[in-house]
Design a protein around this nucleic acid. Structure first.
Lengths: 204, 204
DNA sequence: GGGGAAACAGACTGGATGGTCTGTTATATC
DNA sequence: GATATAACAGACCATCCAGTCTGTTTCCCC
């Protein structure tokens, strides 16, 4: 078996350029030629790495979901290092995203998931990739919420399952708000309210 | 001046069909031909009513924003009829959206605003239409929030301005969550948390 | 150092798509 | 009932765009 030169740098360059353009204009409005011009790369390179444009979309989503999962793990680990109280961990977790929001928002004008969710043209397989990602967040946060509710009986009865989803909701909604108003700082402010809600619920 | 037959029914049919398809696939992925097939209408009719596809987008946005504003006014008026307490009015306001969510979500799989926000290809003019709409909600809700905070000192210090935006955030985030998980009921659940947050803040 | 396979390069194509253009029909005014 | 004009109808066009195809280069293995 012969192993010629490594193609991953080219592949990554294409993915990076594609992600930037997709986040800005959406997937359908992103032409392969535009990606190639931005990468830069050629037609031959593109269709060597991705059989079709849809495969590029799938690859983008997979890479994004993986990075997303890593972020969740990292921030949760950092939050767990700050305190032993699961409620305080949750608050620290959200606070970390608030801090990250200011740096993240200007460079990343949105969430790649939304770019695909609002374009149902991709088959169910990759949409399930998003659903799996969301469920992962939910599971991870739900166990913390349950532990927190155990220690700190909530001020009012709430459904913890959908509360876990509230993190995703606030993130996506905040992104949209920030983008619609052309002001990245909105994301942080919306996340702060989620934190306040948790603080009130668990009496912190 | 001669006034031939009325064109508004055709125009509306085109707008209705276009809105359905745009909400499902996004604006860029919506071809004029697909709209014409769904309306149904012909090329001649389309380009008689809309000089270009982008003009259709603008018209869609304008119509949507107007309906949005009407909804805000109606629900706010209904909430104001329920109670004299601005805090309770706000809670009633959100509760109304929870009720509406179940009926709205299945027929309308998303918010038209997002379809355009995540596709920056349209010029700044129509994006400002969205921003104006958001600012309208913010202004309207902010005055209620300030009145509520006067009567019921908030449990913790929060920024009322961004709290007003939280309604928009929760709505958009909830829509995305519902769509990503293929379960419209999520929207209602997310709105419920927003209501709980308000209840906790104002001690209701 | 020759052979082979992956990694490109780039001209080319067929279909989709936004938009045009030349009619034709309906209706209110005179 | 002649006419003017908005409201359509639908063939047609120019462009763009995803995907193909035929090379050429690079690099490892023997």
């Amino acid at each position: 078996m012969n192993v010629p030169r490594d193609g991953t740098p080219t592949r990554d360059r294409i993915l990076d350029a594609a992600q930037r353009i997709v986040l800005e204009r959406g997937f359908a409005a992103t032409s392969v030629d535009a990606v190639l011009a931005a990468a830069p790369a050629t037609k031959g390179a593109f269709f060597h790495h991705f059989p079709s444009k849809n495969d590029l979309g799938r690859a983008l989503l997979e890479r994004y979901a993986a990075a997303d999962e890593r972020l969740l793990d990292d921030f949760m680990a950092a939050a767990e290092a700050e305190s032993d109280d699961p409620a305080e961990q949750l608050v620290a977790f959200v606070r970390r995203f608030e801090q990250a929001a200011d740096e993240l928002a200007p460079t990343q004008p949105g969430c790649l998931f939304v770019s695909f969710i609002y374009e149902s043209q991709l088959a169910g397989n990759e949409n399930d990739l998003i659903a799996t990602s969301i469920r992962h967040w939910r599971t991870r946060l739900l166990e913390k919420l349950e532990a927190a509710a155990e220690l700190h009986p909530p001020a009012i009865a709430v459904d913890l399952r959908s509360l876990a989803d509230q993190v995703f909701t606030t993130f996506e909604g905040g992104f949209i708000l920030a983008r619609a108003m052309h002001d990245p700082s909105h994301l942080r402010a919306q996340l702060a309210h989620l934190r306040h809600y948790l603080e009130l619920l668990f009496g912190l």
